[in-house]
């Protein structure tokens, strides 16, 4: 009896995969949430407790609507994978600090129900839910969504965002931009807090540098050529640090579901993102263009992936070459043999 179990243990036969990584969706999503916490804390400290209320309300709206939808449709409830929390966090960090509460709540419901669940839930949506909701709100509530005045803040700051200021020809302080002492949405203002979170994600290998690196690089090159400011490191740095570029590049463009998975595709995706953002910022009517750039690139993603499928082992040009060499060798041997 013991022997048979022993043998069974040794000769255990099953189909692959034989080993699974310990990384789960939940762990990944929690990592993303942790990475967003520095930016979130800075937002709360900088804009006052109302920002905390906005964030909590948005996250709750996302989680509750996911739970309610899945219960109503009699689907397995997937609230515990924390993806709704991430969507809520991203959406909340994209909100101006003085927004009336019903707007982000509506956005959260839209993101989860319309953009995510109606297309089949986690992993099936073709657009980043938080960004789609942000664009939905931008179009619907243009005025409150672009009102960056800070009534609750400790120190009064001018109402124009640095990007709008730059676009109008004014100048901004780069140190303020870097630390985050500027008006803007709750999560996008502090470059250093965002970079801290990004470093955490990169160190945990949740994201690779390919998309954000290529995004920022191609954006900088685009601005160098087309912004009309030439090689002005100060202006370039302001453009990179200002607005939602850093936040978008590290936290939204790197979404697994809506971005390409192939390494070459990720590079192409980054370039498209950078160029689109540049086009929207330089030639567009508004000062910011990260959201629309990411959403448009999301739609291009299947095409990018189709064009950049990596060659499987044993296939492709080199395989053909080897095959040819082998057959040639055989022919030579055959000829030799026949010659004899």
């Amino acid at each position: 009896m013991e022997q048979t179990t022993e043998i069974k243990k040794l000769a255990h036969v099953s189909s692959s995969p034989h080993f699974r990584t310990s990384v789960t969706t939940q762990k990944l999503m929690l990592d993303v949430v942790i990475a967003m916490i520095p930016a979130f804390l800075w937002g709360v400290w900088h804009f006052g407790p109302y920002a905390l209320l906005v964030t909590v309300a948005t996250v709750l709206a996302c989680v509750v609507s996911e739970y309610a939808y899945e219960r109503l449709m009699k689907l397995p409830v997937t609230v515990s994978d924390c993806s709704a929390v991430v969507t809520g966090m991203i959406l909340a960090l994209n909100m101006p600090p003085e927004i009336p509460l019903f707007i982000p709540i509506l956005g959260g419901v839209f993101a989860i129900v319309v953009v995510k669940q109606l297309y089949g839930g986690l992993g099936q949506n073709f657009m980043n839910p938080a960004l789609a909701a942000r664009c939905f709100l931008m179009i619907s509530f243009a005025k409150p969504m672009t009102d960056f005045s800070m009534r609750g803040a400790v120190d009064a700051v001018s109402t124009a965002t640095p990007l709008a200021e730059l676009k109008a020809g004014g100048s901004v302080s780069l140190t303020d931009l870097f630390i985050g002492n500027i008006p803007g949405t709750i999560g996008e203002v502090s470059t250093i807090a965002l970079l801290l979170g990004a470093a955490y994600l990169l160190a945990k290998k949740v994201i690779s540098i390919r998309i954000p690196g290529m995004y920022i690089l191609s954006f900088a090159v685009f601005m160098l050529i087309f912004s009309g400011h030439g090689l002005d490191p100060y202006y370039l740095a302001c453009q990179v640090c200002g607005g939602g570029l850093i936040f978008g590049a590290f936290f939204m463009a790197t979404d697994y579901v809506t971005g390409p998975l192939t390494p070459a595709g990720q590079l192409v995706y980054g370039v498209i993102l950078g160029v689109l953002t540049g086009i929207f910022r330089v030639f567009g009517a508004s000062a910011e263009g990260v959201s629309y750039a990411i959403i448009l690139s999301n739609i291009l993603c299947p095409l990018i992936e189709k064009c950049t499928v990596p060659t499987a082992f044993g296939k492709g040009r080199y395989a053909e070459l080897t095959k040819k060499l082998l057959t040639d060798n055989k022919d030579v041997k055959k000829a030799e043999q026949e010659g004899r």
């Binding site: 009336p100 019903f102 509506l106 939905f136 179009i139 619907s140 509530f141 243009a142 409150p144």
Partner: peptide, 16 residues
């Protein structure tokens, strides 16, 4: 007027 979701009178609203 504060509560009008104006995307619904634009093209995407028709599809929704």
């Amino acid at each position: 007027a504060d509560f009008h979701i104006s995307i619904f009178v634009m093209a995407p609203g028709a599809f929704f």
